[in-house]
Design a protein around this nucleic acid. Structure first.
Length: 298
RNA sequence: GGGAGGGUAGCGAAGUGGUUAAACGCGGCAGACUGUAAAUCUGUUCCCUCAGGGUUCGAUGGUUCAAAUCCGUCCCCUCCCA
């Protein structure tokens, strides 16, 4: 049995995670694609030492921002961690908001095909979206059917995959590989949006600008620095945006992210939703514990 | 007081007599999702609905078969001269 806590950014997953870990005497496995990077702390809303309150957190600070990361790697690392915890007689607890990453762990995703290959993809620069899609239609009709012509990134990936004689044959994404409960945190949209705006102001107070400036000055420009908080301030440092505009964009992007997360969760996971009352979080914790215990006793 | 330019859907902004409920962008909402996922992409967005219907373009009164688009009056905004 695995317990998973998901929910939009800023809703309180971290807090609930720590509470559950303490109650069930276990660790937290992060389900976040940005917090894996060292040095991206304030901007990624990474758990602080104080917030951890003694609870061990895995998959946090495991990579330098210059290192590559991917779903496949995440899946491998987390599955290994789950095994470690199970072997130690502990309840695996995954807490995070990166839907696909978490889904890839719980369901039977096979990342045996190739990863994206930018050099191979360049060979198709001369084709427009429509032509590319037609080419894919010939090579891998099944993939073509499920990918929109305008989604060039995915069309290209499917084509370069077909170049290597690998056809998309993955159909197991709905087959679970573990027994799990997924707790989903939710709250009124407008209220969440307000909290997100306030959280950005708090990050600024905590030194967000210095943190990002440090990465910028080191010349770090990777996928890690394309995440929210970092990419907007980079544009400010590049002279494209005023600080004020960058901050407004950070807030905007956090709201957009929250909405996108809801869409993924709602449609991709069987979820036990818990309505969060920010003024009475203990109630949220109690409800979560009750749901998990009921599941464990089934 | 004199002169010039404006007021268009949540916001910005096209449109300057008919095929315009009104381009486009943003924001909102919804959706897709197997190697950048805090990514990439799609749909939708005046109101009621399936077809279809009902109200719109500062206000009001006109002209016209027909107006966001032309004319009168009024209200508000910006700039310039006094």
């Amino acid at each position: 049995m695995i317990v998973v806590v998901i929910g939009p950014t800023g809703i309180g997953k971290t807090r609930l995670g720590v509470a559950l870990a303490k109650h069930f005497d276990t660790d937290v496995i992060s389900g976040d694609s940005v917090q894996v990077y060292r040095g991206l702390d304030i901007g990624s809303a990474k758990v602080t030492e104080a917030e951890m309150d003694g609870v061990t957190h895995h998959l946090i600070d495991v990579l330098e921002p210059t290192e590559d990361f991917s779903v496949a790697l995440y899946q491998t690392m987390v599955r290994a961690k789950i095994k470690d915890l199970e072997d130690a007689g502990k309840l695996p607890l995954i807490v995070g908001g990166t839907g696909l990453y978490i889904k890839s762990v719980l369901f039977d995703y096979n990342f045996t095909d190739t990863r994206r290959d930018p050099e191979e993809e360049q060979k198709y620069d001369h084709l427009d979206n429509q032509q590319l899609h037609e080419l894919l239609q010939e090579r891998d009709p099944k993939a073509a059917q499920s990918i929109h012509p305008n989604n060039r990134k995915r069309v290209l990936h499917a084509i370069t995959r077909s170049d290597k004689n690998m056809v998309s044959a993955n159909t197991n994404k709905d087959v679970p590989v573990y027994d799990f409960v997924i707790l989903g945190l939710t709250m009124e949209r407008q209220k969440l949006y307000r909290m997100l705006d306030e959280r950005v102001d708090a990050m600024l107070q905590d030194g967000l600008i210095d943190e990002v400036r440090g990465l910028y000055d080191r010349g770090v420009r990777t996928n890690a620095t394309k995440s929210i908080s970092y990419r907007e301030l980079y544009r400010h440092f590049d002279g494209e945006w005023t600080l004020e505009h960058a901050i407004a964009k950070i807030k905007q992007h956090n709201r957009n992210l929250a909405r996108k997360q809801y869409t993924f969760f709602r449609n991709q996971f069987p979820i036990r939703w818990i309505q969060v009352d920010a003024d009475d979080f203990d109630q949220t914790i109690d409800r979560a514990i009750a749901i998990v215990e009921a599941e464990m006793n089934r």
